[in-house]
């Protein structure tokens, strides 16, 4: 049998997590196919076909897939699943919207945000904001799961040529229609994929402080900017920058937490970072327990100093 990966993309580029999902998929030691569902799939299909370890790229093409709904994607994926024992995707707002719908239509359970694949039906995943690791086993006939991209290396994209095949594309179901989207424009790298993340907490005190204190440091480090939930709730940063249990999970080479207390919900989103730096005025802050380097200081002095010294 075979493994099917559902590719996430922005219409032009495959999400870099797809190559990580391919690595995860190799654990089943069976052919791995990628589904690219898009309005103009040719470039995307070529990108998918170049990922090492991919057998076939299945292409679903329909104008409505410019902005696909979960309902439409599920209609495309479910009939394909007959040929697959494993359906997986990298964990993201995209996949966690679609795959539970697919799993339910297949009448199987789904395993979310898998950190480690122990065997063909046994997985380790975080529960309670990652404070506990649970090993779970699914005896369902099909395994449907999302995997944490940062836990799997990206497969090489060295021009290995998978076969590209068209698949039947049912029309988008009535009842759900895309209206608009609003992306927070930024020249910075995407938060989930950045090598360096500079995150701010409530102690920043204002959106202006994010722009005037954090942004220059992020510029120097070519870093993405993140935020704690407290900072987002206070309106200092847009919600898509939230790092944590209910926001984005990051695992950069360097994570600099500025004025963040380090609640367990925040730690969930960043504790796999390679090196963690915490700058906080409160020596008792929880963040120091998970930081490699802690500096007790006024962030409004220390951060500009750090920026100037880089």
């Amino acid at each position: 049998m075979r493994t099917l990966i559902i590719a996430e993309h922005d219409g032009q580029h495959l999400n870099e997590q797809v190559a990580r999902a391919v690595t995860a998929a190799q654990q089943w030691q069976q052919p791995v196919d990628i589904l690219v569902a898009a309005a103009q799939p040719d470039t995307l299909a070529a990108q998918a076909a170049a990922i090492q370890g991919v057998s076939n790229v299945l292409v679903a093409s329909d104008a409505a897939l410019q902005h696909p709904t979960a309902e439409h994607l599920a209609e495309i994926i479910v009939p394909l699943a007959a040929n697959y024992t494993v359906v997986l995707a990298a964990h993201s707002a995209f996949s966690k919207n679609v795959l539970p719908r697919v799993a339910a239509l297949l009448d199987v359970n789904m395993i979310s945000d898998v950190l480690q694949i122990v065997s063909a039906n046994t997985y380790v995943r975080g529960i309670y904001a990652g404070n506990v690791l649970a090993t779970v086993q699914s005896s369902d006939s099909k395994q449907v799961l999302t995997v944490r991209g940062s836990k799997f290396a990206a497969a090489a994209k060295d021009g290995a040529a998978a076969e590209i095949k068209s698949v039947a594309t049912p029309a988008a179901p009535a009842g759900s229609r895309w209206v608009t989207e609003a992306f927070n424009k930024s020249k910075r790298p995407p938060l989930a994929a950045a090598k360096v993340v500079v995150s701010g907490g409530r102690a920043l005190g204002s959106a202006e402080a994010f722009a005037e204190v954090l942004a220059p440091l992020a510029d120097k480090l070519h870093a993405a900017i993140g935020a704690s939930r407290a900072a987002v709730d206070a309106g200092y940063a847009p919600n898509d920058l939230q790092v944590g249990q209910t926001g984005v999970v990051v695992a950069p080479e360097l994570y600099i937490a500025v004025g963040i207390s380090g609640a367990i919900q925040h730690a969930y989103g960043m504790k796999d970072s390679k090196v963690v730096v915490a700058i906080n005025q409160d020596p008792e802050a929880q963040i120091f327990k998970i930081a490699d380097y802690g500096l007790v200081a006024d962030l409004f002095e220390a951060v500009p100093q750090l920026t100037a010294a880089l």
């Binding site: 046994t122 090993t135 699914s138 963690v276 120091f288 998970i290 802690g294 500096l295």
Partner: peptide, 26 residues
Amino acid sequence: NVQQLNVATPPARPAGVMVKDVNELL
């Protein structure tokens, strides 16, 4: 069809060090 086999506490990050100023941090 889903069984929880066991649960465990994740390994803690090794203890870090406190630095005295920005220069030492760098």
